[in-house]
Nucleic acid binder design. Sequence first.
DNA 1: AAGGATCTCAACCGCATACCG
DNA 2: GCGGTATGCGGTTGAGATCCT
Length: 276
Amino acid sequence: MGRPPCCDKVGIKKGPWTPEEDIVLVSYIQQHGPGNWRAVPTNTGLLRCSKSCRLRWTNYLRPGIKRGNFTPHEEGMIIHLQALLGNKWAAIASYLPQRTDNDIKNYWNTHLKKKIKKLQSESESQMGSNSKAYHQFMSKSYDQNSNSGLVLSENSSVYASSAENISRLLEGWMRSSSPIKDNNMSSVNGNRDFGKVSTECTNGNSGSFECYRADQIQNEFPISNELECILSFDHSVNEQKLKMDNNNPPLSFLEKWMLDESASQVEGVMELSPIY
DNA sequence: AAGGATCTCAACCGCATACCG
DNA sequence: GCGGTATGCGGTTGAGATCCT
């Protein structure tokens, strides 16, 4: 009945992965494809838990991951999606295919949370004044001309670990090797289905996120209202909405934006990593 | 230059859910 | 339907890096 345990936790190595371990893992996945993580430590000889192998692959070794600085556009997307979805990092990551949930979570906790808090306090202290700090921040986030996070960063110096080198190396391997079955790849992480971006956007309901109506942004206290929308969004209510209609999240305000600005870039991502 | 404070982020932990026999 | 495991996810931790005095 059932299955044997994932790992017995005896002789399991913890801590940072070494380049040698990365290579072993990447080589194995190159040959067998991701999935069946329980078999990975056994078949590779890695003294790692299957969970650790999966995490290492999904967060750092799989091809197509963008490292380094988040663009203002990405920041904006994360802020809006966090306001809409709450701390559903995997769901948020599905709209930023090159970023991992862990990366987004870390960035939110270390940068954006502080940033928003600071801007909120600024706007509160200067309510009614000419302060436009938050508005400027959001405008910057929406900058139509900025490169979205869906484009590979040219700045490789930001992340100079062996993981990136291995990841890039693997990209070349993947391109030159025979394609891996779709069902194998989709098992890596259901939320990493890159095609999902446009599908969900086109299926969304309408008129469910009124915080960003232009008339509200332009009202008497634009900063405080907008902040309120983002910072005080009722997650529980929204999650109920999501539960009511899992396949059609109320993302109407995102639909046009993402379709307009990101659709072509998502296609670019898919070209970059054809295995997905 | 040294030492402490703070920041960053890779990795782990534990829970929830999906899946299998 | 039930018991048990595999997988996915979010919260948290802690070592190393960086900044500040």
